[in-house]
Amino acid sequence: MSRRRTRAAAMAIAATAVAALSTGTAAADPGDAQADIVGGHQATGATPWAAAVTYDAPDHNVFDHLTCSGALVFSNMVVTAAPCVTDQLAAARRAERPGPTFLDTNSSGPIPVKDKRFTVILGKDRTRGETATVTTIVVNPGFDWARGAPARKVEDAAVLLLDHDVAAQTLPLASRAPRPGTKLSLYGFGLTRPDAGGQPATRLQQLETTVLPRSRCADALQSAGEFCTANPNGTDGPGPGDSGGPAVVRENGVARLAGICSRAGDGAGPGQLPTVYTDGSGQREFFYEVARTGGAS
């Protein structure tokens, strides 16, 4: 791997790749990727489309493991970040940033995706929300952490197709990418402590922020098809548990999916640096194609 590509992988890994927390009986999987809302508050208003992405891995004695957040965009489809449901990031992170970077460790190493059975839980409270099983995972075919960001698009997005149509209201896509200065609300179920300790939030967390010029996310190698969000007070923002979580904009009073939580800069703890989000409107063609075909090529 070239020096530039190695740096791209390391930068992308830094904030998104802190290990998630488990509510099961085993230690958390160091292969989990997510970028928690530190400094946020319990979500207000109607958020039926909010999704907690969890999995069971019985062969590894891991159950009800919160790995990421997401958003319901169609009645049978949740979108999230690609590293939440691939092995690519776990392998790269293990090479670039060994053990001490992980929030929790698993002596047997990262749990491969093939051993995970994913579930989504919808609504504000992940202990009582509507639940659906993930039957098909489709990752944006352009996704590759090490392909040479920012010169090439990272395309950090994945689709989770569900085993049934859920009753919850969906979150429509924004009509365009948000511009610098645009007000956004960030959502997620991750940790709420700046030291990335404790347990993930049971109730959906929310943080108000704004879009920054792309230069402010240079450390995170922001590519085309992405935007940069501020970390209010220099301390608040996403961290472990929130990769894939939605950034929501209001267009004519209607909540819409502006972005999908991806990453921050190299070595950043929760809320220490601005965060890169994948532009939701830029993924429209991918999302709709999967919705029409069920992921069949």
Rank of each mutant, 00 (worst) to 15 (best):
L171V: 02
V113K: 03
S297H: 12
T16L: 14
L162W: 11
G198C: 07
R93Y: 01
S107L: 15
T67N: 10
A8H: 03
A33Y: 02
P240Q: 00
G148V: 09
T6G: 05
D242Q: 01
T6C: 04
G282H: 08
T105P: 08
L273E: 00
G123V: 02
D59Q: 15
A82Y: 09
G253R: 07
S2C: 09
F227S: 09
D242Y: 04
T54D: 10
L122W: 04
A82F: 09
T47A: 05
G99H: 14
P83M: 05
Q199V: 15
V276Q: 10
G31V: 06
I121P: 05
P172G: 03
A92K: 10
V248N: 03
G188Y: 04
G245M: 07
W145Q: 01
C228P: 13
T16D: 14
D29C: 13
L89D: 03
Q42F: 15
T101A: 08
P30R: 04
D32E: 11
R147I: 11
P240C: 00
V154G: 06
G295E: 03
T202R: 14
L103K: 13
G181D: 09
F118L: 15
R97I: 11
E155M: 13
P200Y: 15
L21K: 12
V211L: 15
C68F: 01
R5P: 08
A258Q: 05
A15I: 05
Y277S: 03
G109T: 05
A27Q: 09
V249D: 05
Q206P: 02
I37T: 01
Q205W: 02
A51P: 07
